[in-house]
Computed example of a mutant assay.
Amino acid sequence: MFDLQGRTALITGAGSGIGRAIAVSFARRGCHLALADVNEAGLAETARLLPQGLRVSQHRLDVADREAVAAFPAVVAAEHGSLDLLVNNAGVALGGTFLQVSESDFEWLLDINFWGVVRMTRAFLPMLLERPEARIVNLSSLYGLIAPPSQTAYSASKFAVRGFSQALAHELEDGPVGVTVVHPGGVATSIANSARLPSSISADEGEQGRRATNKLLRLPPAQAGEIIVRAVEHRRRRVLVGSDATIVSVIERLMPVHYWRVVQRLTRSRR
């Protein structure tokens, strides 16, 4: 077991949802925390939920800001001295087909969901390599296993995180830093409600899409956080979060070309 007592973890997107749940699960195990998010009010709420006696710092950080990320290791080192765990959780969503989504919106999403992971890893890997044992935890998605229509940008980013994480794990396997890639299924966060939509999609269409998506987001974030942190304790390289992610991963392996027909039928039955 990777003992988390007394370790220090940095979590991006810690102001809500899965990031907040991961922070709470780490804190229960006595892990000190550096919490990062663009939402400062959300960070304060996450910090309020944590037990006393831990070293907890809050940092407003946009992972799409190259200069801010490059300068961030010095900030974390000043607050905590060292770092044992980097959790790249920050992410955004973007609805619409490829023809509907503008190039600027596509780049906006990739800059956060993929390049944010790469930037944070590049910035903090030297700190992690100084530790006897450390770990990078990258949040991909169910949509890093399958690629539904109207998710070209999101799936592209999450498949990229998956590939990056697997290659990085192979490169680092003889050293002290391990890599875990996480594929959450339908976790009950606000990601659908906060998703960006193309201007060509009407308000009514957008609301219908959000309602349909929210019906599939059922797993409590607290449960997802526990699954992820337990996987870190067991040094697992890949984590499927939720029964939907587990089932869909099997369908995709059995039917790598035509899986979407089966997934559609399952999705309609769940709704």
Results as ranks from 00 to 15, higher is better:
A44W: 02
K215Y: 02
L109R: 02
F2W: 14
N89T: 06
V92K: 09
A27Y: 09
V117A: 10
Y143Q: 12
G96F: 14
A47N: 05
N214F: 02
A14I: 07
N89W: 10
R211G: 02
T246M: 14
N89Y: 10
P51H: 03
R48C: 07
R230H: 13
G186N: 06
L109Q: 03
L197G: 04
E79Y: 08
R131M: 11
A147N: 13
F164I: 00
D111W: 08
V239N: 08
T8G: 00
V76K: 01
R236G: 04
S269M: 14
P256F: 10
L142G: 08
L50W: 09
S150M: 13
H258Y: 08
L142Y: 02
E103L: 09
R162W: 15
A34P: 04
G186Y: 11
A71Y: 01
A203C: 07
A68R: 02
A203V: 11
S140G: 03
P126N: 00
R235T: 05
D37T: 11
A134V: 09
Q223H: 08
Y143V: 15
A71V: 08
G209M: 13
E67V: 14
S269R: 15
V263E: 09
L4W: 06
G209T: 10
R270Y: 12
V161W: 00
R162V: 06
P221S: 03
L168G: 07
A167V: 11
L216S: 01
S57C: 04
S200G: 10
H59A: 00
L4M: 12
R29G: 08
R20N: 07
L142Q: 02
P148Q: 06
L35Y: 04
R66D: 07
Y259W: 11
A192H: 12
S157D: 01
R210D: 00
G81T: 05
K215C: 07
R268N: 09
V182D: 07
I11D: 05
A160F: 07
L61T: 05
T12R: 06
S200V: 15
A77W: 03
S194I: 12
L217F: 04
I146L: 15
Q264M: 10
S16G: 07
N39F: 11
A156W: 07
G185T: 03
A160S: 14
W108F: 14
E40K: 09
R60H: 14
P51M: 01
S141A: 04
G91Y: 08
V229Q: 00
H59L: 04
E107Y: 13
Q5T: 15
G242A: 10
V241M: 05
R122T: 02
V232L: 13
Q264G: 03
T46A: 08
P220M: 03
L83Q: 05
E205P: 10
S155H: 06
A222W: 05
I18T: 09
V69Y: 12
I11K: 01
V38Y: 10
I228R: 00
H59K: 08
V38A: 09
G186M: 06
A222D: 15
